[in-house]
């Protein structure tokens, strides 16, 4: 097969796998609903219940608490969307469907790429719902359209990164019981970032950890885009590229592990 042919086949595989991922999500409420409802609910609970915390004197985010939390939910839903896709991959291996994919695809990295694209498409739907809810509840956007597009790109890379992370585990363990192993590290990284208040208001050891956590930079950048005051963009870009590169290797290892196990 020529190089162009290989690319075309890989693209065909990736698009087919992505199509299935999106198709199944939209035909099975049990798959789609949690990935929509969880972020929506977190957004309601945090933006609605904790907003008084913006009255603390040193709380200095200019676009208001709803926007402050929307940025978090944006990153959180993208990351969790990847994990939910990881559950689906593990399920495909556990129930044997993955064999069909492994058998049919000449270049198997197309399969992983397909899952990744599927996760991103699904997340965009989630984002549309949460964004609408945020606008209805009076979210203030001080950033330009360009800033919002930059936020979209940032979150899409987070989605891709977390999908590859979860895929690496799913293809190594090949059981849905691996769910918590995919979810916990992402959860811990997310919540060891400044979720409720800006970094300088976070107390104790969490503050120290948050300073080193790449998700802190991502959150601050996301919030900066909404406020129209881009913050730590270069640092976030470096973090994203580094994390993405790492998880590409991780997912590739997972794929090899799955291939070895048959």
């Amino acid at each position: 097969m020529t190089a162009a042919g290989t690319v075309a086949r890989t693209r065909s595989v990736a698009l087919s796998v992505a199509w299935r991922s999106v198709h199944n999500a939209f035909h099975n409420p049990a798959i789609l609903l949690p990935s929509v409802l969880f972020p929506l609910f977190f957004f309601m609970a945090f933006a609605g219940g904790l907003s008084s915390v913006q009255n603390v004197p040193e709380f200095d985010y200019r676009s208001g608490y709803t926007s402050f939390q929307f940025a978090f939910i944006c990153i959180q839903s993208a990351a969790f969307g990847g994990v939910f896709t990881g559950f689906a991959i593990a399920g495909d291996f556990e129930f044997g469907f993955a064999r069909r994919l492994l058998l049919a695809a000449p270049n198997r990295s197309g399969i992983v790429a397909g899952y990744m694209i599927g996760a991103m498409v699904r997340w965009m739907f989630v984002l549309a719902v949460v964004f609408s809810a945020a606008l209805i509840s009076g979210m203030r956007i001080d950033g330009s359209l360009g800033h919002l597009l930059a936020l979209l790109v940032l979150a899409l890379v987070v989605s891709a990164t977390s999908t590859l992370w979860a895929a690496g585990i799913a293809m190594r363990l090949r059981t849905m019981q691996a769910g918590p192993v995919m979810q916990m590290p992402i959860f811990i990284l997310l919540f060891l970032a400044p979720v409720y208040v800006p970094l300088h208001l976070v107390a104790g050891w969490v503050h120290d950890v948050a300073q080193l956590n790449p998700f802190t930079a991502l959150l601050e950048t996301a919030r900066g885009f909404i406020a129209g005051e881009p913050t730590k963009v270069a640092l976030s870009a470096v973090c994203l590229v580094a994390m993405f590169t790492l998880v590409v290797g991780w997912a590739r290892g997972g794929l090899h592990s799955a291939e070895r196990a048959g």
Binding site: S12, V13, R20, H23, N24, F97, R100, L101, A104
Partner: peptide
């Protein structure tokens, strides 16, 4: 063990497989 996706119809399976096979 038949490798089928319970959520897809027979025709959709064909479509998916066709895409996988290029």
């Amino acid at each position: 063990d038949v490798a089928l996706d319970p959520m897809l119809t027979g025709r959709e399976h064909m479509r998916l497989q066709g895409g996988l096979q290029g």
